[in-house]
Write a protein that binds this DNA or RNA. Structure first.
Length: 603
DNA sequence: CCACAGTATA
């Protein structure tokens, strides 16, 4: 009935307006038009289904799929893919099992789904079971292995597959690069050229990323000129990898030049430039890029926020960071773990521990990094009890503590004078937690034991460690000996250090200071002599903190006027940021990769 | 007339 009074020309018109609505992401409008069409055909239904799933409306998609009178293979495959995109693996599998004629695309879609969820063995089984495999199916395995860190397996598949297309080569190049084997990636490209395979835009983009990671300055520049000749510099993928490439090679001017080729509307291109500025310590420039993005209504992503906040951190500008925080709240990133974790680190480094805690509480899905950041933040700030409180909370969650958690905890105990607790933590962790105890942890424990005044016990502890101590562990003991004027242990400790690390200037200096304090001048000059003979250079201190907020030059070479520099042991006096470290200088053997501040103490 | 699915890129 309806179909008869519905002329074919009109139908086509309706179809194209539905397509347009889906493209413009006005899905509800598309649905309204769609509902007016009597007996929509399988093509249009499929398009509508894809529209739904791409907007995370799996329910609507499934309902429509259910109502379809006829379903072809493509409709089934679209529905399966849609389930996977909406992260419903079980439903995808159910449909796959029900599907009447599974073709190679259906199998490949499922394999890809399992691979993306890290279910490598299931993917492998499906790949073995599938009745026939084309190049795309093999490529899917290469990509899947690489994204699960199994590069060697990927290489095996790459070598075994019957025929390779440009996607196979590109996937393999990118996979090697993203698993830390960028040089191999570049070699593979040479091989590809040798086979006479024409690179595509994607290939160039991956290749330039490999150059960026391998710091292959010349090759990267060559590829750049080739890309210019082919007219591909305007491509957003190519442009952003070029920007990153030049930034990594410390040629930021060239990054800017690539950026200026065109008025870019892609966040990723903007973020590449922003990150480039930040990593090259041009923090003012980075923040300018960020605010320009906002001005031009380019919606920042997690990485944009992280890079911008890193720059705020580096210049110690609480105001700039607060503005970025405000922007994050406005744009709905408040609950994001990615942005939240950067904010925690930012606030705690700027001494605003209250804000760090507030930020932490707002994060919806707190991950390991969130917990570690707040823990280390509290530890740094001298709030050992808070760090401890967060740790006890953490133990009640699903998140498993790791080495960094442990370091943070030991530092917290150490700074806040909770030395007995620190020893308990150590026992607790060695006994109940399956983490690797590092030399950093041992050094921290030695420090803690020494704080209890038990130098002899600390020495025993070092000797009984299951791994051989390094010079840092002994240095912690030597440091304590100097404070307690214990010559006997100091001499044994220094001997161990000099055996392990003959150029350790800190050991010489500490020992010499110890003798000097007792007026043993002949020993002092003997040590000075030895130092000269062995050509031990005094090391300069270095910190990310600046005495005044915005003086970037100060920490370019690590030396500002207000630093008191001692070899290896760095006492940093921060006149304008008393909140950061509390009143007295803090002690910590390298807190963690999470915080750049490395402060060792004498107090 | 066409129109819908799987493999590579920041």
């Amino acid at each position: 009935m309806g179909a008869i009074s519905f002329p074919e020309g009109r139908r086509i018109l309706f179809y194209s307006s539905v397509s347009d609505c889906i493209k413009n992401e006005t899905l509800d409008e598309a649905r309204q038009i769609f509902d007016k069409i009597p007996n929509p055909n399988v093509h249009l239904c499929t398009k509508m289904i894809t529209g739904f799933t791409q907007n995370n409306r799996l329910k609507d998609a499934l309902q429509l799929f259910d109502e379809m009178p006829v379903r072809d293979t493509i409709a089934w495959n679209s529905m399966i893919k849609g389930c996977l995109e909406c992260r419903d693996l079980a439903m995808a599998r159910k449909l796959f099992d029900q599907m009447p004629d599974r073709n190679v695309v259906a199998w490949t879609t499922m394999i890809n789904g399992y691979m993306q969820l890290g279910r490598v063995e299931v993917a492998e089984r499906l790949f073995r079971e599938m009745p026939s495999r084309d190049t795309a199916a093999w490529n899917c395995m290469i990509y899947g292995y690489c994204s699960n860190g199994k590069v060697d397996e990927a290489v095996r598949v790459f070598e075994q597959m019957p025929s390779r297309n440009v996607i196979s080569w590109t996937s393999m190049i990118s996979g090697l690069d993203q698993n830390g084997r960028s040089e191999d990636a570049l070699r593979l490209f040479q091989q590809m050229v040798g086979y006479g395979i024409e690179p595509t835009t994607s290939t160039f983009s991956c290749l330039i990323s490999a150059c960026a990671n391998a710091l292959a300055v010349d090759l990267g520049a060559q590829i750049h000129s080739r890309v210019v000749k082919l007219g591909l510099v305007l491509d957003e993928f190519v442009a952003s990898s070029l920007i990153t490439f030049y930034a990594n090679c410390q040629q930021l001017e060239n990054s800017v030049e690539v950026f200026n080729e065109k008025a870019h509307g892609s966040v990723v291109v903007w973020t590449s430039l922003l990150t480039g500025y930040s990593l090259n310590l041009k923090h003012g420039g980075a923040l300018e890029v960020f605010s320009e993005m906002i001005k031009r209504v380019i919606f920042p992503n997690d990485s944009s926020f992280t890079s911008a906040l890193n720059s705020c951190c580096a210049i110690g500008s609480l105001d700039a960071g607060k503005m970025i925080h405000a922007e994050a709240v406005k744009l709905g990133f408040e609950a994001s773990a990615f942005v939240g974790n950067s904010l925690i680190t930012f606030y705690s480094k700027c001494g605003s521990i209250q804000d760090a805690i507030k930020t932490f509480q707002v994060i919806r899905q707190k991950n390991l990094v969130s917990w570690n950041s707040i823990l280390v933040g509290c530890a740094q700030y001298g709030h050992g009890m808070w760090a401890l409180a967060f740790f006890t909370q953490m133990l009640r969650t699903e998140v498993e503590p790791d080495e960094i958690t442990f370091t943070g905890l030991l530092c917290a105990a150490n700074h806040s004078g909770m030395w007995q607790k620190g020893r308990h933590f150590f026992q607790f962790f060695s006994k109940y937690m399956s983490i690797e105890i590092t030399l950093q942890h041992y050094a921290c424990v030695v420090d803690i034991i020494c704080h209890c005044g038990r130098l002899d016990e600390a020495e025993e502890f070092i000797k009984n460690m299951p791994v051989k101590a390094n010079s840092l562990v002994w240095l912690a003991l030597l440091n304590a000996c100097c404070m307690h004027s214990n010559f006997e242990i100091a001499e044994r400790a220094s001997k161990c250090i000099m055996d392990l690390d003959p150029n350790c200037s800190a050991a010489y200096t500490l020992l010499s200071n110890l003798y000097a304090s007792a007026g043993r001048w002949s020993d002092v000059s003997r040590i000075r002599m030895e130092m000269r003979m062995r050509d031990v250079a005094k090391q300069k201190g270095c910190s990310w903190l600046t005495p005044e907020g915005d003086k970037q030059e100060n920490y370019h070479n690590g030396i500002g006027d207000s630093w008191v520099i001692l070899p290896m042991i760095q006492v940093i006096i921060i006149p304008d940021l008393p909140l950061l470290c509390g009143a007295k200088p803090m002690i910590t053997p390298d807190i963690s990769p999470l915080c750049d501040v490395q402060l060792l103490t004498l107090s």
